[in-house]
Structures are given as C-alpha cells and as structure tokens.
Design a binder for these strands. Sequence first.
DNA 1: GATAAAATGCTCAAAATGAGCATATGAGTT
DNA 2: AACTCATATGCTCATTTTGAGCATTTTATC
Lengths: 325, 325
Amino acid sequence: MSDIRKLAAMPAADTGAPAALAVGLTAAIVAATGEEPRVLVVRTAQGSDALPSGPLEAQHRTLEAGLRNWVERRTHQALGYVEQLYTFGDRDRRETDGEGAQRALSLGYLALVREARPTGAADASWQSWYRYFPWEDWRGGRPAAIAALEPPLREWAAQGGKLGQERLRLNFGLGGARWNEERVLERYELLYEAGLVPERLRDRNEGAPLPEAARGVAMAVDHRRVLATAIGRLRGKIKYRPVVFELMPSAFTLSELQRMVEALSGVRLHKQNFRRLVEQQGLVEETGDTRSETGGRPARLMRYRREVLVERLAPGVRLPAMRRT
Amino acid sequence: MSDIRKLAAMPAADTGAPAALAVGLTAAIVAATGEEPRVLVVRTAQGSDALPSGPLEAQHRTLEAGLRNWVERRTHQALGYVEQLYTFGDRDRRETDGEGAQRALSLGYLALVREARPTGAADASWQSWYRYFPWEDWRGGRPAAIAALEPPLREWAAQGGKLGQERLRLNFGLGGARWNEERVLERYELLYEAGLVPERLRDRNEGAPLPEAARGVAMAVDHRRVLATAIGRLRGKIKYRPVVFELMPSAFTLSELQRMVEALSGVRLHKQNFRRLVEQQGLVEETGDTRSETGGRPARLMRYRREVLVERLAPGVRLPAMRRT
DNA sequence: GATAAAATGCTCAAAATGAGCATATGAGTT
DNA sequence: AACTCATATGCTCATTTTGAGCATTTTATC
C-alpha cells in the first residue's frame, strides 16, 4: 500500500473523534498609560506573576467571541481588538517536570483595551511589560539589561559555533547588527535556551544567577512566552494595521500618538518623518481644537479617521526609521 | 469586589484543569510542480475533498514535532517547513447543523514539501489549490471566476450599504482597487457570508446556484477555510522569509524561481525587477552550470545560499510590482 | 522682551521601485 | 552560414519613498 494511501486510509481523512485534551485560554490584555505599555497580570497561589487564563467555555459561536465574553464579563473592560496569537502545546509547559503530565493546550490571545483602570485589588494589576522584558526597551538608549546579558550570552553562543554566534548577533543587535524590535519571541527563546531566564532554571531546578533587572521578572508556566508572542505580534501589526488607535483616546496629539508607538515598539522615532507618514496616509484628521499643556507651542488635536478602516483596508502606522542619534 | 478582583479570583488565575475538548490537526501540505501549487487532498467517506486531518497525539514534545512525525510517518515526505496557522474552533465547523454538536478544535498547519510524489491512490492526490480558489489565479489575467462572481457579490454588497460595498471593492479589486494577493481568507469569508460558496449553502441546506468553475470545489467541514489561511499566509511569508526555496529543487534558474513565486502568489511579476531583487539580496548564487533546454539563451543555474538564513535572519523574496500589462 | 520647549514646515540626498529598451546566446530553420 | 525565435541577461531612467536635519512658529515662563 502506498504511503499516501495509508494517509488517506487513516481515520484522519474524516473528521471523526479526535483526542480529548485539556484546553485553556491565556490572554495578554494590553493597555497603555502615559509612556508605558501595560499588561494585566494576576498573582498565582504560588506567588508568581501570571497572565489571566482559564478554561475554554463551549457556549460561544466562535473562539474570539468566547474570549471577549470571558474577559468582559470579569473586567467590564471593552476589548477593542482581539487577535489569536498561537496555540501553545509543548509538553514542557508544565510547571513541574512530572512524567505523566497530561498535555494541555493553551490558546494565546492578544487583546487591547483603551484604558488601564486601576484594579483596586492586590492580586491583579497593570504592569509595564518591560518588567518582564527589560531588554526590549531601547527608548532610553541601549538597555542596561542587554549589557548585563551580553557576556553570558556570548559564552553560551561560543558553544554553538558560528551559527549560534550569528543567531545571537542578529537577534540582539550585537556587533553592528541592527536591532529588530519585532523579534521579541526569538530573543526570549534564545535566552531560555541559554539558561538565562528563571523559567528555564525553574524547569530544570537550577538556581538563578542573574539579577532580576537583567533577566526580567519570571511568569508562571509559559506565560512569558505568550507575552513575548503578544508583544512581537503587536509591534509588527502596528506597521500595517491601524491597531494603535485602539489604545489611544478619542482625541490626541501627534506627539502623543508617536509616544504610544514608541512605547509599544520600544524604540525612538524621527519626529518629523513620523508625522509625515501618519498625515500623508490620511489616518487622522484635525478635530479643530488644540492642546496647550504641552510646554511649548500648542498641538493640534487629532482624531482617527474611522473611514480609513474600510476605505483602505486599514493600513497601519508605518514606522519611519528608528532615530539614530 | 472589583471586577478585576473577580478576574484574579477565578480558577483561571492558576493553570488548573481546563475543559477537555476534542482536538485535531488539519494540515495543508503544499508542493509545487511545474506551474501549479498543489495541496495534498484526500477523499472523505462522503466523497468530498478534504485536507489530511487526524487526532492530536500526545507523545511529542512539541506540537510541531507531532505534526512532522504524523505527516512523515504516513507520507514519507520530508517536511521542509512547518508553520502553525490558526486554531479553528467555531461552533459552525460541524458538518451537520446538529444542536448538541460538541465543540471541536482544529489546529491548522501549513507544511511545505519539495516534490509532489505521485500518490498512486485514488483517494489521495495532489490538487492545484486553484481548484478550490479559482478566483485567486490572476496569472492569465483577470480570472473568469471573478467575472462570474461579481454580479451576485455586488447584489449582496448592495444590502450591506456603503461599508459592504467598500469591503467588496477592496478585497476583490473591483472598481479600480488593486488586487491584494494576500487576502485569500478575507475573500473566502466574504464569499461565505454572501452565500456564494457551497459550504455555506450546505451548512444551511440550500442549493448551489453558481457553476463550480466560479465558486470553486468545496471541501469538508471548514477545510477550505484552513486552506485559504494557508495560501494567504504563504503568499505573505515568501515576501519576508526565504520559504520559497523549500519548494525548489537544489538547482534552478531564476525564471523557474520566478514562475514558482508567481504560481504561489497568483500574479505575474516584472521579470527584470524580480531578478534584480533576488540577486541584489544575495539570496542565491550561481552553481556555474547552465541549463539550455529553455528554448532560448541558456540560463544560469542557481542555488540557494543557505548561509543567508542565519546571515540575515532570512529575508524573503521581495516581490516587485505586479506586471501591469 | 528674552528664553525654553514643543509643534510644525520644508529641503535634500540617497535608496528603492516600476517600466521598458537593448543586447546576448542558444536551438531550430532555410 | 544566415536567419528567426525565444528566452536570458544587462542597463537606463523617471518617480517614489526614505532618512536626516535645518528653520520657523507659537505658547508658557522667567
């Protein structure tokens, strides 16, 4: 019987009875206040930070509807934008290394809310996402975390030969390579492989050698991986879909918009070019008002032109080059 | 208790016992021979076309490893590239509209194989993906399927007001809007909403009004949706990751490479500009040989420069503008 | 009224892009 | 051997898009 024939013959070919698994949702709920992108974080019983997560409920027509309902029912936050990130199902996502560990699937979601309301609870809070990824914030120049991580990373890479070194160089912008703000997940995975994040050490019962300021705050299970995926996805998405506006108030100045984009992408942008792009793309229009509490010449207030969403299938805020100086 | 507190308090906050669901894999296994991108298709017991799919097995360390193993065990095809597409879990994916339908999750995967071996089986075969999406092939100019679909689409859009009409215009490149080859899924979803694909009619027990040449061949359950996702993802990916080479033989001419890209993206490209991009990006190098069976001046044979993968984190084949004429 | 701090306006060179003309080199034909 | 086809390959050119930075305007503050 041909190989392909076997394929055709397996139960696979029809839609009958797949395996039953434990399936959960994990949501990276993002807001931004002031200069910081924030993510909603809860405390686990074990005292570690975690993303809100829970079982998948069966009563909704679509997964996204289920996610929306699930979050909104509990937070009364209106989710502006929801996107499925990835389905994580690796065996090693268990907290303990127990052998008979049942495989659990986790559907990761990214959700954007316009304002980060005070939580009023000790066990749920909005945290800057750079708390978990200190090496991702280049707005103030090269982060100290990178400097701290560089030596152990290089040591690790040396064992990986030329390939490992190139991988390090390119992902972390070392040795002249330029920083690519979207490779958040790749960097986290590399750090994990290099044994430099607490999750890995935890998973192998080793001690943590690096200060938290360098390695970032750990999260339960694989939640930091989910968050890394969310950040990377969002950083990519703002360039070709107008999702930033889901995080902005209804009226804003161009500088505020720029600071939001900078906060999300973690890099500084060339101001005049940023404005040129945003304006010439017709993403925004003047409200007619100005805001004078800016410490300088008053800024025009803008609003998002909702029409563009359908008008041009939603182009995003293209980023001008990162400011070099 | 604050809303957020509730969120924190729910079982969700830890990783305990999520709901058990039926979970399956569905794979779009793509190869390309000659001028056609092909997908491996099996026949269901009911006689309809389907993608290979089966239950998720628990013994692998990662989902991707499981998928690779699963496919390779059955087809003995080496999967060059594997990518998780999306997790489909909508209620309406059931074939019959039965009420108590249990929710089934389906993890969609895209896999690329270098050659489409003859199947030798009547119930498994490599089919051009344009069989299922005749409106996606613009290589020979505007497809006849678009012309056939346009009147009923316009009729449908008229009921949706200005928004619906814009959506139609932009997704299908009507009225001067330019064709965007990546929006495969959006177009399929729109056709589904408009009731123009058999799946929708089947789901609502209605008859099919359009000829197959226009509406495309239907697939079981939501497999055409999975395939649409795969095509769209691949069409986007080849622009920024060198995945095309996973489908090419080890040595090829630039024209062959171009024809492959055109087959996948479904549009014709400007030849000289295509070469300029590929060459100046250093994606390929000459093998030194030439091939003279081209019917004209012999072409240099090229090979993919494997180094670029790590060297530059794998840029893709940027597409020059679609050929206008 | 000077000064500082932004916001806004404008210029310019370099790079990337979209099109198309011109030439080269084989196979098959006359 | 000259000629014709059919591609492959080389090169040019106008236009757009970027990346950078200088200059001017408009408030609040000293």
